[in-house]
């Protein structure tokens, strides 16, 4: 070992004869060890770990906030009333807290959104992935994604001042605040989610499978319907579940154009209230800290959180399954 080292030293000193600074491997190692004692090297991983842990703290913060305040809420309102009551009217004395009308409002708007978004979103995804040239796809896909980037307040404004008056021409008994118009706008908002993710899923289908079917004489539509769609189905379903979850959590469009009348039923032409719109209504008003009404927004928020969390986990689970196939 020593022999090798001294030989190397000879080599190095030979090659560095032009330079006046002589150095040895030993010195280099010592210098490097000194460098490793550098504070940055020791401390940085821990600082970075802390920044990564912030995300866990955020989750814990959300859970802690929602659970403790919801706990207060259930001190005032029985469990059974909350889940099976059919009237949501917190402003009476005592207030009535049956969440079903809020869920009904949320689901009505969400289903309208899904009815709008799934056909358009899927059709656009099929066009982009199967029919469009690469150039068209590269241009059109980002433009479509602009639809998802527009602030929701803009959609709310558009729903209230443009879509509702427009629909009133066709449906005379449509109220100013209704479930239809925000539902359609949320549908448009989530369309790019479905298009983009389904397009990715269809693109992940190996080209060889497509070419095999085309070589057998199938038309493009037959390839799409019988080969590509079945292969990409989990990705497509995951995109729809994700879009559904986004529609449930959407707040501003429903607050502005949906109204604030919690009611049960299937009517989409009259004013409704979603879970998110209720939270906004109370937070905006001056419900005193510590009142049942104040705690109720956390209970509703907790329901919303659980609902979207479950949907997101389902979407992730479905998507993980597709990854294992290829």
């Amino acid at each position: 070992m020593l022999l090798i080292l001294s030989w190397m030293k000879g080599v190095f000193s030979l090659s560095s004869q032009h330079n006046t600074v002589p150095f040895s491997v030993k010195e280099m190692i010592a210098k490097k060890q000194k460098q490793q004692k550098n504070i940055g090297e020791k401390v940085m991983p821990w600082i970075l770990l802390l920044t990564a842990i912030i995300s866990i703290l955020t989750t814990l913060g959300i859970l802690f906030t929602l659970i403790t305040e919801t706990f207060h809420f259930f001190g005032d309102v029985p469990f059974k009333e909350f889940f099976s009551g059919t009237t949501w009217y917190p402003f009476s004395d005592p207030g009535q807290y049956g969440i079903l009308p809020l869920i009904s409002g949320t689901l009505r708007i969400t289903f309208i959104a899904i009815i709008v978004a799934v056909p358009i979103g899927l059709a656009a995804a099929i066009y982009l992935s199967e029919y469009a040239t690469d150039r068209v796809r590269r241009i059109v896909k980002p433009i479509l994604e602009v639809l998802a980037g527009i602030p929701t307040i803009v959609y709310g404004f558009f729903a209230l001042t443009f879509v509702t008056p427009l629909l009133q021409n066709f449906i005379p008994n449509l109220e100013i605040f209704n479930a239809l118009s925000p539902g359609i706008l949320i549908g448009i908002m989530i369309t790019p989610t479905i298009t983009s993710l389904s397009d990715d899923a269809m693109n992940a289908v190996p080209k060889a499978i497509r070419e095999g079917a085309l070589a057998m004489g199938a038309t493009k539509w037959e390839v799409t319907w019988k080969v590509v769609l079945p292969a990409a189905v989990s990705g497509i379903v995951a995109s729809i579940v994700l879009a559904f979850s986004r529609a449930v959590g959407e707040t501003m469009i429903t607050s502005i154009a949906g109204g604030s009348t919690p009611n049960l039923g299937l009517d989409v032409t009259s004013s409704v209230q979603t879970m998110t719109a209720y939270i906004v209504q109370i937070a905006q008003g001056d419900a005193g800290y510590g009142t049942t009404i104040y705690y109720s927004i956390y209970a509703v928020g907790f329901m919303l959180f659980l609902f979207t969390l479950i949907m997101n986990l389902v979407a992730q689970w479905i998507r993980r399954r597709v990854r294992e196939e290829y």
Binding site: T58, I62, T65, L66, G249, T276, G301, F305, T308, N312
Partner: peptide, 11 residues
């Protein structure tokens, strides 16, 4: 990333 923004408001 999937938590609704209104819940962040509550936090």
């Amino acid at each position: 990333a999937g938590v609704p923004s209104v819940v962040y408001g509550l936090l």
